[in-house]
Write a protein that binds this DNA or RNA. Structure first.
Lengths: 180, 180
DNA sequence: ACGAAGTTTCAGGCATTTCTGAAAACTCAG
DNA sequence: CTGAGTTTTCAGAAATGCCTGAAACTTCGT
């Protein structure tokens, strides 16, 4: 590993631990991400100085997150791994997985708590707070879904506009009002 | 604690650990969040069965995240804590803090890696991948900043539109073209 | 200035998570 | 079916992170 790659990999290790992903997994991903060609488990283990079994577990987890793809090179029985190249795609995948693992369970917990009959003032207040949270999360995730459905051209146009969206919205408001 | 609150609190404990925030901190926040009135450290410790010092550390961390506010009740020397009520506000705060702690350091690491002179093919490729990542993160955070600057009325209008934004964009494209 | 009430710090014990090496299991060519 | 090459599993060692109680510190009323 060159010093450049080493710095990148080690930063991802640190960051990984802040994200509930462990250091090893973060480093493995980082290495695969910047690598020119697909890597096999031995190469990864050697570069990062992890045991073979640790690499195997890390790769399993990265596959579960769909952040890494298995490939077979012809004439080689070993498994090679590479990271999907399109950064947007990666972001999407990450968002989907986090949603599935974190958002959905939280929403379902909130829904079931909101179904309960609140027997006292305290519970009624708690439910009101939970309802706020539920509403916000649903709003955000629905919006995110909608956005995600846009093709990337439209999306980048939208993002390029940034805060000027509000002018557009004002404008259409006026337009609608004039028509009436 | 009622069973309703207990369920909520314990879910947040679990989720906390997936987010790099520890279980205790998650539970303390959850308890304060659903509580009707501000709580002091002893009340929290008693409800959750944590030691007094553990509560103190947890509260310190929550204050660092700006998720919890200190209040003094008149005629009581103890410190009381409450969670800001507006869910949007909370989301914003969370996003800002995560940005400061995770995104900014990553961007600055990437920038400095991109300044390096790449001596070989491998590093050149790594830099290209890092550039992709840098571009994506900047795009996303800039956009997020813009959005955040919108007042909540405009924001909810925008979110309400969801994917139909693209119609609006098509429309303005056409409009501009006609004017030319 | 003192003491009571309250909060924070921190070293060490405890618990959880991560990592390893050995062994088991799988895969495929011959 | 055999065995070489490869991956996975898993029990326990190592590392990390968490929690506690005791002590230090802070604040405030008298």
């Amino acid at each position: 590993m060159t010093p450049l790659v080493r710095a990148f990999v080690s930063h991802f290790g640190e960051m990984g631990s802040r994200w509930g992903i462990n250091r090893t997994v973060g480093q493995i991903y980082a290495l695969i991400y910047v690598s020119q060609r697909a890597l096999n488990a031995d190469e990864i283990g050697e570069a990062l100085e992890f045991s073979r079994s640790n690499v195997s577990m890390g790769l399993k987890e990265l596959q579960a997150w769909r952040l890494v793809q298995l490939r077979h090179l012809s004439g080689d029985r070993r498994e090679y791994f590479e990271a999907p190249g399109n950064a947007w795609e990666v972001f999407r995948t990450l968002a989907e997985e986090r949603r599935r693992r974190e958002i959905e369970p939280t929403l379902s917990m909130l829904r079931s708590a909101l179904m309960e009959e609140a027997g006292n003032e305290e519970d009624r207040h708690a439910q009101a707070r939970m309802r706020d949270m539920h509403t916000l999360i649903e709003q955000l995730t629905n919006w995110f879904d909608d956005i995600q459905r846009l093709d990337s051209a439209t999306l980048s146009k939208l993002m390029g506009m940034g805060a000027t969206v509000h002018k557009l919205l004002d404008f259409t408001d006026k337009f609608k009002r004039d028509k009436r």
